[in-house]
């Protein structure tokens, strides 16, 4: 398992993506890497903006990537107030097909998180939010 700690700020988003991409690229095919990295980015953005930022508190984001037999697991932990994005409401098909004049962008990040991985799990562990994203290798293993 590879683990790194990042300041919970928007400037950390690109380094977080680079870290996850570097770990996942050797085992996942290119589209799967992109979608996993996108899911991690959206989750990290939520933590930085809504978890820490709107409450005016500084903090860190711990990111751990584990490559195991059959899946890639990314765990993000933070000490922001509790928030379970895994059960938050997604945009409806009607909202997604609405004319751009009428559309609201809310919920798209949550949608991209769930679309990018096979399992999205949240738990509150002590004073920490722990979000785990799992991508199975079965259909998206990088060709030898």
């Amino acid at each position: 398992m590879q683990k790194r700690t990042f300041p919970a700020e928007l400037e950390s988003l690109a380094p977080i993506r680079d870290f996850v991409r570097a770990q996942a690229a050797p085992v996942l095919d290119t589209p799967a890497v992109y979608k996993l990295v996108l899911a991690v980015d959206e989750l990290s953005t939520n933590v930085v903006i809504h978890g820490y930022g709107k409450r005016g508190i500084a903090g860190h984001l711990d990111v751990a990537v584990s490559i195991q037999d059959g899946f890639v697991s990314v765990t993000l932990e933070d000490q922001a107030p509790p928030f379970d994005a895994s059960v938050a409401a997604l945009p409806t098909p009607e909202m997604l097909s609405a004319p751009l004049e009428d559309r609201h962008p809310g919920g798209l990040g949550l949608m991209l998180i769930r679309d990018g991985v096979d399992i999205f799990h949240y738990e509150r562990a002590g004073d920490r939010n722990r979000n785990t994203l799992i991508k199975h290798l079965a259909d998206c293993r990088r060709p030898e």
Binding site: Y34, L38, D41, E42, L108
Partner: peptide, 9 residues
Amino acid sequence: GFLASAGLG
């Protein structure tokens, strides 16, 4: 190379 939901907004 990368477009997040913030970019969609």
